[in-house]
Design a protein around this nucleic acid. Structure first.
Lengths: 157, 157
DNA sequence: TATTGTTATACTCTATAACTATA
DNA sequence: TATAGTTATAGAGTATAACAATA
């Protein structure tokens, strides 16, 4: 830590300026945010070969695992607003990765399905995702990853 | 976990739909993102009494700890673009919480300082921030917080 | 030449209100 | 009445290019 602090303290940010950031350096919320942003950034670059943003990949993955679900179910599962999901579905449908099939049981809703092309893309994306997760696991160590998952789960309660 | 899964697996999201989310449920990046968003949301509400967004609070805190720093230093420390910091400084100056003093050594830059009003507000904000951090610590347990900080630090390497 | 602050701009993500067609 | 999908819209947050003043 090339980062001078009057009083010793454990985990701290390492700003490139050499300035003091005691308040933020001691903040768990801030550490969580910075780590998430850096991890997310790596993931965004990871998915570039398939030209998908993380949210779009997550939508494809949910459709793959729950073929025929409707848009309300997809948005609720992903924590996205129904209204904001529309453009995402439009986009993926425009790329020919998914399709809206009119549901026979409820004529208001669409059943979402992957196309063959979509299945191929999500398969390739899943490989890239796996490499990203492996990179994180390597940083954390074997049991560090499980520890982190458990602690993050506690934050969700 | 009121959330059926064919195969047993440890840490998983708990979507309100009952749909399967194996890919996302096993993803550390996704867990990190969801936990950060929830934590951030709590922090946003925490700061409402002082009418400050988290980024503005972090700027006030950095100025408090490094009085006289310039905008480039502030933006680099916080990981914000210089260009995007301008409106933030404008806003806080407009509220009378900080001031731009012309730096004698370098006439291009401003020295940022808290006003007396700014010191009072950041003091109150720090109390609220402390309550937020205490809430997180309670969810994680005594040593859980330190574990999490250490693991997040590993992600930053 | 390089740096500080600045403006303009654009793109993504997110949130709300209101509409339609169905249920 | 309520729900599924949709449109319009607005607010954050973030990113790049270009400029004037100063170093």
């Amino acid at each position: 830590m090339a980062f001078q602090n009057r009083d010793d303290d454990g985990g701290n940010e390492t700003p490139p300026t050499g300035l003091t950031t005691d308040t933020l350096g001691k903040s768990l919320g801030y550490a969580l945010r910075r780590a998430q942003l850096r991890t997310f950034d790596d993931f965004v670059r990871t998915l570039e070969p398939v030209n998908l943003r993380p949210a779009y990949y997550s939508l494809l993955a949910v459709i793959e695992e729950n073929p025929g679900l409707n848009q309300s179910e997809a948005s609720a599962t992903l924590g996205i607003q129904r209204t904001n999901l529309v453009a995402m579905v439009d986009y993926l449908e425009g790329r020919g990765l998914i399709e809206r099939r009119s549901a026979e049981s409820d004529r208001r809703s669409y059943a979402l399905h992957l196309t063959d092309s979509g299945k191929a893309v999500v398969g390739r994306a899943r490989e890239l995702h796996g490499a990203h997760e492996a990179r994180l696991a390597q940083k954390l160590g074997p049991q560090g990853r499980e520890q982190l998952l458990r602690l993050l789960q506690k934050l969700m309660d």
